[in-house]
Simulated assay, not measured.
Amino acid sequence: MSGAGKVVCVTGGSGYIASWLVKLLLQRGYTVNASVLDLNDPRQTKHLLSLDGAKERLHLFKADLMEDGAFDALIHGCEGVFHTACPVSVSSTEEEVVGPAVEGTLNVLRSCVKFACVKRVVITSSIVTVKCNEKPLSPDMVVDETWFSDPAFFKEMKLWYVVAKTLAEGAAWKFAKDNGIDLVTLHPGLVTGPFLQPTLNLTVQYVLDLVTGVEPSLPPFSEFVDVRDVAHAHIQAFEVPSASGRYLIVGEVKNIYDVLKNLKQHCYPSLSLPEKWESDKPHQVSKMKAEALGVSFIPLGVSLRDTIESLKEKGFLNI
């Protein structure tokens, strides 16, 4: 196993992406230090402690993004640091999202500098730090890693999640350059797929809303990627020596109505469908860097079907 004898850490370990990352790291033989907000909350810990290999090689730590030095114990002795923790509510205020995202990222990186054992840091960013500016997207456009979002534009619109993720990424790159940290950032689109945690996160809630007929809160088409591919991409970003810079992690840009219609026809006859959305052809997102890293992508139809099965299994959906 590639991770045998190696120690890595995952911040925000109870989250959607992080839980899958912990699972895959344990499968590869790594010893994993993972942070949660409350060690006494079974909703944050039980699903992690039940993973194969957890008893022998998973260590949970309490850590708060805004507490200086809170990640020292987590990172001590680690070769790789995966920073996934971030506030993700799209409706929160500037104070609730921007500060924790930026300062939390810097707190983690300050801890990394203290330990010479850290060889690489992988940060979970978002496609919103890449594609969001005043320039409208058209079908002939191919979004790639050279694109950067404009936080000032979205600050005026009070879209604090976009602002927070963009400013946090910028702060991370500056700190890494100033302090000699080997940093890689990953930029997934809207993440779907089965979930390990007992609670609903934002993107799984979006799928649940769609299949139960709730008014969608996103554009007719979006950039989609399966959570298992995102977790695998994190590991590749750490293990592949040549990995560097930013990576877009997007499987497909699709009109979600068409995908749900296909699922209704072939898998779920009782599935509710939103009103048909008329939309132009979507823009494109480059896969070149991700595929060069060794990332392949689960088809969106499979990912959504697995999301729905997970929602049914955990009692959130009855179809």
Rank of each mutant, 00 (worst) to 15 (best):
K6H: 07
Y16F: 15
L21D: 01
V22P: 00
L24N: 06
L26Q: 01
L26G: 00
N33F: 11
A34K: 10
S35E: 02
S35T: 14
V36F: 02
K46P: 00
E56C: 12
L60Q: 03
K62Q: 12
D64E: 13
G77W: 03
E79H: 13
G80M: 07
G80N: 04
S89Q: 13
S89I: 08
T93V: 10
E94Y: 14
E103S: 13
G104L: 04
G104R: 03
L106G: 09
R110F: 08
S111T: 07
V128L: 02
V130A: 05
C132T: 02
K135Q: 10
L137S: 07
L137H: 11
V142Q: 06
E145W: 09
F148V: 10
D150I: 02
F154M: 14
E156I: 14
E156F: 10
L167C: 14
E169K: 11
A172V: 02
K177H: 11
K177T: 12
L186N: 03
G189N: 00
V191F: 06
G193N: 06
P198T: 08
P198Q: 04
P198E: 04
L202Q: 13
L202E: 14
L202H: 14
V207P: 01
D209R: 14
L210E: 02
L210R: 06
T212I: 12
E215V: 15
F221G: 12
F221H: 14
E223Y: 05
D226H: 01
V230H: 00
H232A: 07
P241H: 05
P241T: 08
L248H: 04
K254P: 03
V259W: 07
Q265D: 09
S270H: 12
K276C: 11
W277M: 15
E278H: 14
K281P: 11
H283F: 15
E291Y: 08
L293V: 06
G294R: 01
S296F: 08
I298F: 08
L300N: 03
L304R: 00
T307A: 03
I308D: 00
I308Q: 01
E309R: 12
E313C: 09
E313A: 15
